[in-house]
């Protein structure tokens, strides 16, 4: 695993009107690192995570992803977001798309647009002729999506709509939907909090697989067992700052601040 930094957060702050939710947060996330964020409700965990892909526009500071400050309103955020997968508590599968379409819709739209651009460039002799046509791109994405569905054992659900699925199935599909973009990092916001207890395991297992494959992951979760097992580093958020951080052993085993001690007393 290389030691280079994938995401650099510098003095990040975020306010909703008068309410200061993040106060000058700085943190580096290395390639392949598994970072788990814990903290009390309202401490700013989701906001920090959502600032990483600018789903929430930071009020101040920088989020440097692959050398580019994506918090800068002038950058084309969409290009960078394509390489940052995100998984939500409420799954957010597209209701009007089948399972397969849920996975293919974004890559097909994005690659088709690129194809049109490449065709124009080739037409004006500014670039190579694209090698694949639209049909081939669609076929390729469908095949990739089927492979992802096979991986999670849901290939027979390819043509059904999300409303017919269980929460665990929805969340695993949401995860592979993000994977279909070949992201460099995966962001998880309480991925198991909306699940019935018996379905938590299947989602955590998939996340562990990803972790073992070396995916860079930032995970907000209340699953402390999972955090212990998977995390390289645990961040404890309190009042909009990272109050304490370290290995799971350090943070869970020998907490320094009273705030962390009382938080752990509540959740463990």
């Amino acid at each position: 695993m290389e030691n280079n930094v994938l995401i650099q957060v510098r003095d990040l702050s975020k306010s909703f009107g008068e309410l200061e939710v993040l106060r000058s947060v700085s943190v580096d996330i290395k390639q392949g690192e598994k970072v788990v964020i814990v903290g009390a409700s309202g401490s700013g965990k989701s906001t920090l995570l959502r600032c990483l892909n600018c789903l929430e526009d930071p009020t101040g500071g920088e989020v440097i992803f692959e050398g580019v400050d994506i918090a800068d309103p002038k950058v084309d955020i969409n290009i960078h977001r394509q390489k940052m997968g995100m998984v939500f508590q409420q799954f957010n599968l597209f209701n009007n798309k089948t399972v397969l379409e849920n996975i293919t819709v974004a890559p097909i739209i994005i690659r088709s647009k690129q194809l049109r651009r490449d065709k124009w460039r080739a037409f004006f002799k500014k670039g190579e002729k694209p090698t694949l046509n639209k049909e081939q791109i669609v076929a390729e994405e469908k095949e990739k999506a089927m492979k992802l569905l096979e991986r999670i054992g849901l290939e027979e659900k390819a043509d059904v709509y999300p409303s017919t699925l269980s929460g665990g199935q929805k969340q695993r599909i949401a995860i592979v939907r993000a994977l279909a973009m070949n992201p460099k990092v995966m962001l998880f916001d309480e991925p198991t909090s909306a699940l019935d207890p018996e379905m938590v395991g299947e989602v955590l297992d998939l996340m562990k697989q990803l972790a073992n494959e070396g995916m860079t992951m930032v995970i907000v979760t209340h699953e402390m067992g999972f955090a212990r097992e998977v995390a390289d580093r645990v961040l404890f958020m309190d009042g909009g700052v990272i109050a304490e951080q370290g290995s799971p052993e350090e943070v869970f085993g020998s907490p320094k601040s009273e705030r962390l001690k009382s938080f752990l007393a509540k959740v463990l």
Binding site: Q82, Q90, N95, A106
Partner: peptide, 26 residues
Amino acid sequence: DDGQMEAGRSLGLSTWQTMRTIIIPQ
């Protein structure tokens, strides 16, 4: 649900691409 737009945007689709394929049809 707001999550529909957020999911589209998080995948790298633009606001308009998400509107067109996800939001408007629904």
